[in-house]
Design a protein around this nucleic acid. Sequence first.
DNA 1: CGATCCGTCACGCTTGATGTGG
DNA 2: CCACATCAAGCGTGACGGATCG
Length: 323
Amino acid sequence: DYSFNDSSSSQSYGEVNQLGGVFVNGRPLPTPIRLRIVEMANLGVRPCDISRRLKVSHGCVSKILARYHETGSVLPGAIGGSKPRVTTPRVVGRIRDYKVKDPGMFAWEIREKLLLDNVCDKFNVPSVSSISRILRNKIGPLSQPNNGNGSGGGGSSEHSDSNSPPLISSSTTLINKCDHSPVNIPSVVSSSSESICKIEPPTWSSYDQSTASSYHHRYLYPNVAYHSPFQHQFESAMKSPYTGANHIVSNSTTNGDISSAFTHTHHYHHQHHHHHPNTTINNPTNNYASFFNTFPYTQTTNFAVTTPYYPSSYGLPLTPQAS
DNA sequence: CGATCCGTCACGCTTGATGTGG
DNA sequence: CCACATCAAGCGTGACGGATCG
């Protein structure tokens, strides 16, 4: 159960929402939970049921699914930062060039040269402190000038920040397959180049280890084991040539049984996809209600392999739009 | 007509790049 | 170089309201 009751760690923080789920105000949900939301939506579970089952507010579910539709990414956006960046890759590149040509240059000299060369104007020229920081953090040893970050030759995105840790590996396209925006990559996301979409078990000691420091160790999420008992159903659903969950069928009608859950889901979507939302739910009682309460689970699903068409609960494709 | 679903948005919060001052 | 301040970004929650259903 994601909504942990925190008996395992005296260091955990969080608030409890109306559904009984735990959240950290101002912080994104853990990636596995975000993934699970998309997973369940792809399986045809209605957003309201996702909300209840994961104990995440429906507004949040709606937002995450909308973002997924739009960008193909389940990851949260880049948090923090302020003001339009003045230290664009171009500026950083020029600073690097100056420093390469004259390693003895002071930050204030570089600042003046940026103005002199019309790289910046007086409104967007970095402060001496910023330049100093750039020299220290972004350029560092000048053994490899213009290390391919595009600063010198242009063409790099303004979002690209040579000071940032590498964004998620391009091979980890489950998470980020369409998302070229700057994002925080929680460390729970595997950066393994070979395990596309593999989500590491979130054995978090802090919320976001990538920003771990004594200063940032304030928020601890539970050590959520992430074992999905129905991973194979999901994976096979994802490989379906047409509508994901449609081939998941079962004779079982046991309430709470996963198969009946998927069967119900199938009915829901099969009919709603062709007709109208909310018109033909066979059984208003939650056939699949209790099933997903069997959290925690493990998520090792790969859904970047195929991009089948999955109708959402309102007949909208869940498949991310090509960007 | 009440219940339900879902999109939207204000709210209070955190974060982090940048600026400032010592 | 460091500590601190600033502030715009994103976060999830919770409430609202329109649409729909039974």
